[in-house]
């Protein structure tokens, strides 16, 4: 139950951050969503790499941070819906650029995040 409450509060913060960014940069929502998803992918993988060093935090806090804050910040449904929207508007080229940018860079950022996380881990020894 405590975990659920942590996730609720953290996800509220993550979702609000996404809402704020979408509101401020509503002129180009496609780029904004790509940015949000890439940043989130990097951060979550970074935290995952660091997990063994974060043992001083409670499991509830870590669940809030990963599942809540970052999970609520990034979004998959908007990603797939934006692809459909571009496709529907006959912007097929842009749709595939959007798709490939999100998927390739998302994975790239996650890989870098995880490597950096484990590197920080190793530094302390």
């Amino acid at each position: 139950m405590r975990k659920t409450i942590y996730i609720f509060i953290f996800a509220f913060l993550g979702g609000s951050a996404r809402g704020l960014l979408s509101y401020c940069f509503s002129d180009n929502l496609f780029v904004t969503i790509i940015f949000i998803n890439l940043l989130g992918s990097f951060l979550l993988a970074f935290i995952t790499g660091l997990i063994p060093r974060l043992s001083k935090f409670s499991a509830e806090f870590l669940a809030g941070l990963s599942t809540g804050l970052i999970g609520g910040f990034t979004t998959f449904s908007t990603f797939s819906m934006q692809f459909v929207t571009l496709f529907k508007n006959s912007e097929i080229g842009l749709a595939f650029i959007y798709l490939i940018t999100s998927l390739f860079l998302g994975l790239g950022f996650a890989l870098i995040g995880y490597q950096l996380g484990t590197k920080f881990l190793g530094r302390k020894g």
Partner: peptide, 16 residues
């Protein structure tokens, strides 16, 4: 739905 789905977990799980 935006909070229900997650892009970061998808990428992180791919890496793991």
């Amino acid at each position: 739905i935006g909070g229900y789905t997650t892009f970061s977990t998808y990428m992180n799980e791919t890496v793991q």
